[in-house]
Design a protein around this nucleic acid. Structure first.
Lengths: 242, 242
DNA sequence: GTACACCATCCTGTATACACCCTGGCGGCC
DNA sequence: GGCCGCCAGGGTGTATACAGGATGGTGTAC
């Protein structure tokens, strides 16, 4: 097994995932098993396996017998992705709120999260736009904590896994267009609304807040994609026809 | 490539899938790569790949470094599965109905399906219970046509793929407890209601009918699982604690 | 009789070799 | 000059070899 500590396959997967999410590997780029193996210091077997997993994550288009390619980004795909998330994530938030109403322990991580959010939110609002952009790492840390906590608290493993499987694509889109400062502010508001509804055990409000947040996020993303700064200084092309 | 026509990996996958769905491979059974390879006349590589794909389908429990096992069946798992399907499939039916209202061509396969259903339904009701049971292959052919048609007409590829991915597990459960004649009759009614709502372009009715059908199906399955005939003459154990 | 330790065995993870396919470019032929 | 066929290269699919690690059974000591 070449040492449980190493885990070549896992390492290759994580590395490729990062490269694709960060757009270092551009949509449409060929993923040759031998070439990647040489670059990453692994043989074909782990690379193959990693590529299959990335295909499941929706980051790679894979057709048997053909060269795997980094999945292209299309406007239609973005719409479909968000439509699907809109079906799942508000429901997950609602079910967590319901579970929390029945068992207070479910809510512990959300109380923590809400506290961290409030703290960050306060300092974030005090910054000017440039400083806000510079602190976007922290912003994502807080907001992503929410997704993670919902998934962790989600009672239904199918729902949890499906939401988790969509995360990689969402992350890549985020790299296509970082949130603007104003959007970050409203996003924080939306997260606070979701967290409060959950800690209150109000399933209906949690679902509504989740739906609202996703709708806003999608709109911000679409606006960004359809504006001129598609390329972000790189030549990442997005298919706007879909 | 050993001849495009063969497709060892695909063949092994299909074969194992059938064996697991039909319970010939019992829940919890070990799936050793070498052993399966010898039995199916393939080397470890295609078997590995097939096992990974089956894990994605939820038919196999796979932990890196450990022996893969056929996924166990638990009552809790069944509940989670149906809860999740209840979230997706009625929504898919509704979205197809909506799409059909806008574009009549979407509905063509459903008109055909409804016609076939009516024909089968008529002759099916004329049979006695034993004959109904004997014709259950035809029954599944008609009812499964519905799932397939919804998936095919589903505009959202994420939704379609997720529903499709759950199919294998549903099929396996069906093998655990075939529908009783009375259930088949009501199921036909439910399918007719769904089909009519879709062809009418009534999204709300389609969603309600889909929800109702799933609830009824789940109830019939749970009743069957919690009764004594768990084992179906085989020693397939179901974990009732979950 | 029981519990612990050691050993044989099996199994997976990884590397590598071979077979076939598909593509693209070059050269000859019309 | 254009078109067709051949050849070389790369790419995946599959088979097989090798290197650890987990597991289960057996034997022994208490």
């Amino acid at each position: 097994m070449q040492g449980r500590a190493t885990g070549k396959s896992e390492a290759v997967y994580e590395r490729l995932k990062e490269d694709i999410e960060s757009l270092r590997l551009r949509p449409g780029a060929k993923l040759s098993e031998v070439q990647l193996g040489e670059e990453l210091g692994a043989s074909r077997t782990p690379v193959r396996e990693a590529i299959r997993r990335l295909a499941r994550d929706g980051l790679v288009d894979f057709v048997p017998g053909e060269v795997a390619r980094v999945a292209p980004i299309s406007l239609g795909g973005v719409h479909a992705l968000f439509e699907f998330r809109m079906l799942l994530e508000p429901q997950a938030a609602a079910s967590v709120a319901t579970a929390g109403a029945a068992d207070e322990r479910v809510l512990v991580p959300f109380h923590d999260l809400l506290k961290r959010l409030e703290e960050f939110d306060e300092s974030f609002r005090a910054l000017d736009a440039a400083a806000q952009v510079r602190s976007y790492t922290k912003f994502y840390e807080v907001t992503e904590g929410f997704d993670q906590a919902v998934i962790a608290a989600c009672r239904n493993p199918y729902l949890a896994r499906t939401i988790r499987d969509l995360r990689s694509q969402t992350v890549r889109l985020r790299h296509l267009s970082h949130s603007r400062p104003r959007r970050m502010l409203t996003s924080l508001d939306e997260h606070r609304a979701m967290l409060k509804a959950i800690t209150r055990g109000d399933a209906q409000a949690a679902e509504a807040a989740g739906r609202h947040h996703l709708a806003q996020t999608r709109q911000a993303l679409i606006d960004s994609l359809t504006s001129q700064d598609l390329t972000l200084g790189r030549d990442v092309q997005v298919d706007l026809t879909g």
